[in-house]
Design a protein around this nucleic acid. Sequence first.
DNA 1: CGATGTAAATATACAGCGTATATTTTCACG
DNA 2: CGTGAAAATATACGCTGTATATTTACATCG
Lengths: 236, 236
Amino acid sequence: MSRPRKESGRTVTAEEIKAVARRQMSEHGTAGLSLRAIARELGITAPAIYNYFPRLEDLITTLIVDAFTALAVAMETAGAEARTEGAGLWETFTRITRAYRAWAVAHPTDFQLIYGNPIPGYHAPTDLTGPLAQRPFAQLFDLLQAGWRSGQISLPEEYQPVPPALAGHIRAYRTKSGLDLPEVLICVLLSGWARIHGQVMLELFHHSQPFIGDPGLFYELELSAYLRRLGLPPPG
Amino acid sequence: MSRPRKESGRTVTAEEIKAVARRQMSEHGTAGLSLRAIARELGITAPAIYNYFPRLEDLITTLIVDAFTALAVAMETAGAEARTEGAGLWETFTRITRAYRAWAVAHPTDFQLIYGNPIPGYHAPTDLTGPLAQRPFAQLFDLLQAGWRSGQISLPEEYQPVPPALAGHIRAYRTKSGLDLPEVLICVLLSGWARIHGQVMLELFHHSQPFIGDPGLFYELELSAYLRRLGLPPPG
DNA sequence: CGATGTAAATATACAGCGTATATTTTCACG
DNA sequence: CGTGAAAATATACGCTGTATATTTACATCG
């Protein structure tokens, strides 16, 4: 019954486990991650991981949380950089949204983990992922709010008037979140998120390449079209 | 070694297998489908399915093909109905794109199977899925083409001029596909696809509800905003 | 300093999975 | 009626997540 403990201190940290999990995920896809494979790579037996993550689900959940915050951080630093450089509304908005796609392209499996269907029976706890999903865009809300207050942004007429039923919901959200924006602008921002998200999704699954070749270029066009429609003057 | 063959003719058809697979998928998610579970439900042993689908991948691939064509058919019948009723450009476009979301909401797992990350190690053969993915939108291309030729559609200025690098790619696609549309309009249509797709994706994963409550209402607003921006007059 | 309690690894086991192989049954056709 | 192909089967292998009980290592304290 001798148990060859490799070294005395072969205690693994939760961070190591997550790192290996992320790497394996990026190599074999979101669903191609296994406790046993992780343990193998760490020189550990599989049940040992249970000390850190009682279930595989829990590991996945923390991976999702990490990914969400990583995306948010990427966008927030992009925004912070723009602000410190004294960039204008156009440039700031562009950099932030650019960071969205850049992060997705750089970490496709994490992005799919967040915005796709990750693992067999797994369903993310929406009460946990909900706020996380909104965080990356909080800053865009602020940006639009500032732009609208300063009169730089005009409200596209094609979104007006917002149908009453929809406006009711939006007002509920607005009072709950403390935002002070007209319903139209919230609609326009949400439309912007969907546009961006849709493009990234189509790109990640290679649906847009046949049409436009370079999705990055088309993404830029879409961003600029969006901002121009808000009445912002293109730079340069 | 007696082998109790339940009835003489317990030969199962490929269609039965697919049907059961689709049902189990809709119950347990895209990744929650198993050869053994299917076989169990059909009163068959798992290896028997190998006569119809040499690998699980092949079964998934045919499911994907079926789903793509089902979505295309749904959109095409919507378009056909609109045409037989003599509906105008606005109404026809709306009905077709509405069918996109309606199908996605009615068959979320199939939609995720198509536009998401379906199964563990599985990667769809892009040469097969590529044309399939474009089919549902061929009809929208035609619609816009007709609308533009008849002068009903105007080209939004915010997408002009199309950057040269992008325009080159688009021209290549245009000549290959025999479409006769200005680059701008192709960009606008692709943007429309991304908008629609993004909204549906966000809805399916419950990311838009917190903001706008009823995604169906917001979808309608987005469609109408899109068409108004093309210069089409709203009906009624 | 040595005993002790706890945390973290382990061994073992179970049920389920996809898949490979070889065997047996069934049925249509010559 | 006999034969051959098609389709089911049994069996087996290695993989998976997970449960249970056991053993080790380490920090803490009398």
